[in-house]
């Protein structure tokens, strides 16, 4: 075992994993995290805590992770390279591991221009692939980026993200290969709505033999309303929502129920794709629906281990 985290045990044990995303509050109320923890605890194997998502200042990912950890939940600490240089990154990793965090997800981060501090200086001292490499070197060689030794062990399970719906489509698999080469143990993808395109990407992933080297968890975002479907289709870069999904939402009598149905159908289809080892549910501002989706998709009991 590289980290001994629950997520690692589930994935390495060959089980189909379920992870869920928790957005921290714009404030210091620990109860917000605890409430989401209670809600999702028995409906997933590990919980991601986002790191100032969309560049909006929120409670830090590591502190959210600690609050979940105290509840017996296996947290996944998201870490973006937008806000920290290599000194702060490595220091925060040491601190996170010292406090019991075992899964770390490496991301570039949404550009600061999108957030509530658009005049901030973006750091980007290293990029997400170099962050993966840094974590692997710290864990396996016990060395910092500079080459100096770090003391003791650093048990971490290294995660990365991939967006099969970004362009250029043909290059995405090569970038995934770079992440695997850098040391990613698991991948959480951008939300899948266009299963056909996602399958095509998975074909390429298998052609490159990457499904044998890394565990891929496909992203799910439950759609709450017609407005949300349209907004994601038209305004969210990196998300591809086919018209037929928007039309289904428009024609549905009960939009929320339709959103749940769509999520479950997508999960069913993803489960059939060779090389998909789990799903990652990002119920942005609709965490309450996750238990129902997990239950109706036949993914209980959770955590599976």
């Amino acid at each position: 075992m590289k980290s001994g985290s629950n997520l690692e045990k589930v994935l390495e044990g060959g089980y189909f994993a379920v992870t869920a995303e928790v957005g921290p509050p714009k404030g210091a109320l620990s109860t917000v995290i605890k409430r989401k923890g209670e809600l999702l605890k028995f409906h997933c194997d590990a919980m991601n805590v986002t790191d100032n998502q969309t560049a909006i200042v929120r409670m830090s990912s590591w502190s959210g992770c600690i609050l979940l950890k105290e509840m017996g939940i296996d947290p996944v600490m998201q870490m973006v390279v937008r806000d920290r240089n290599r000194i702060a990154i490595q220091s925060d990793i040491l601190g996170a591991v010292a406090l019991g965090i075992r899964n770390i997800l490496c991301l570039s981060g949404d550009h600061q221009k999108f957030g509530n501090h658009p005049t901030a200086k973006g750091v980007y001292d290293i990029d997400s692939i170099q962050l993966i490499q840094t974590l692997k070197t710290m864990r396996d060689d016990r060395k910092f980026m500079c080459g100096e030794d770090l003391s003791g062990e650093l048990p971490i399970y290294i995660g990365a993200v991939e967006n099969p719906f970004a362009d250029p489509f043909e290059y995405r698999v090569h970038r995934l290969a770079k992440k695997v080469k850098a040391g990613a143990d698991f991948i959480q993808t951008q939300a899948v709505f266009d299963v056909k395109k996602f399958s095509k990407w998975m074909d390429m992933v298998r052609d490159h033999g990457l499904d044998k080297q890394v565990h891929i968890l496909a992203g799910i975002i439950p759609i709450k309303s017609v407005g949300m479907a349209r907004y994601m289709r038209d305004n969210v870069s990196g998300i591809s929502v086919p018209d037929e999904i928007v039309i289904r939402m428009e024609e549905a009598k009960d939009a929320k129920e339709e959103g749940v149905k769509i999520a479950i159908e997508i999960i069913e289809q993803l489960k059939e794709i060779e090389g998909i080892h789990g799903i990652h549910i990002m119920a942005v501002a609709w965490e309450d629906i996750v238990p129902l989706i997990v239950e109706r998709a036949g993914l209980l009991p959770r955590p599976i281990l």
Binding site: S108, F114, Y124, V161, A166, D167, R175, Q190, S237
Partner: peptide, 26 residues
């Protein structure tokens, strides 16, 4: 690159444009 990535493109590259502006080429 808006993020100065050495191993890009990030997940925000869409139809050859950068996520931060449709006027900016990726």
């Amino acid at each position: 690159c808006a993020k100065g990535l050495l191993n890009g493109p990030c997940g925000g590259s869409q139809a050859g444009k950068c996520e931060i502006s449709p006027d900016m080429t990726c």
